[in-house]
Amino acid sequence: MTTSDLDPAVPRSADPAVDADEARRARNRRIEAVARWALPLVVVILTVWGWHLFSNSTQTRGLIFPEPARVWGRFLADYPMLFGSLMVTLKITFLALGIAIIGGVLLAILFTQSRFAELVFFPYAVVLQVTPIVSIAPLIFIYVQDPLARVLICAWIVAFFPILSNTTLGLKSTDSNLRDLYAIYGATWWQTLLFLQLPSALPYFLGGLRIAGGLALIGAIVAEYVAGISGSGSGLAFRILEASYRLNYPRMFAALIMIAVVGVIIFAATSFLSWVFLRKWHESAIRRET
């Protein structure tokens, strides 16, 4: 069977003739490559500058709205303490996220294997999801004594649902023809799960992970707020509360910005993870030439 007349089986060497369209595309690519970093940077610089002007706009405003330089100074001075708190917050966030991933994926697998299990457990998952964490947290703090466990539970509750619901949806979205094919070839339950359902669910799972990462951080912060100054916590939220009682506004800002940066980093990391896993085959991760 010859195919040379049908398939472009031999890739052609680079064509020297570049048309106007191609040149325009190349120019746009170069502009985008620069703008991608330059634009956000400019925005940040302008924001900090505006902030600086605002803080100094009246004689006393700087006292409660400290200028960037003072926040930075405080950050450097308090760095060892803030860094320790950052580690505490990160530990809780990632532990909660880890448990949410394991629990969410396992429960999703259970749901797709057993309609009965889904009918039994899904309502609880929904109730946990729709009840605001700030209203559940005080109860958890009454019943759970361990300071790490109580915060962890709060963070887990908010991070868990997006993983569960997305993964369940993904596991159920396998191509039915592929499932038939697996059945015809006598695939075992385990093979079907491993080679077919889990890969099909991967894009959905990663979408859930992106949401859950941010939520785990929020859960960890909220739990610490609920624990309050009396709690034995020492995460970033605790530092903010503590600093507010001491009217240490620069430190509040420093801790707040750290939390925001952590959130951004988590989002970037989960997005990167999606890209790594999906870039070869999934539409969402494929960049098109326009």
């Binding site: 697996y182 695939a187 093979q191 890969p199 991967l202």
Partner: peptide
């Protein structure tokens, strides 16, 4: 065609063997 989008052409063709 009912191919697995996450697998290369060769790995798709491997499937019947893989399941054995």
């Amino acid at each position: 065609p009912t191919l697995m989008p996450w697998a290369t052409v060769a790995r798709n063709v491997w499937l019947p063997f893989r399941l054995r």
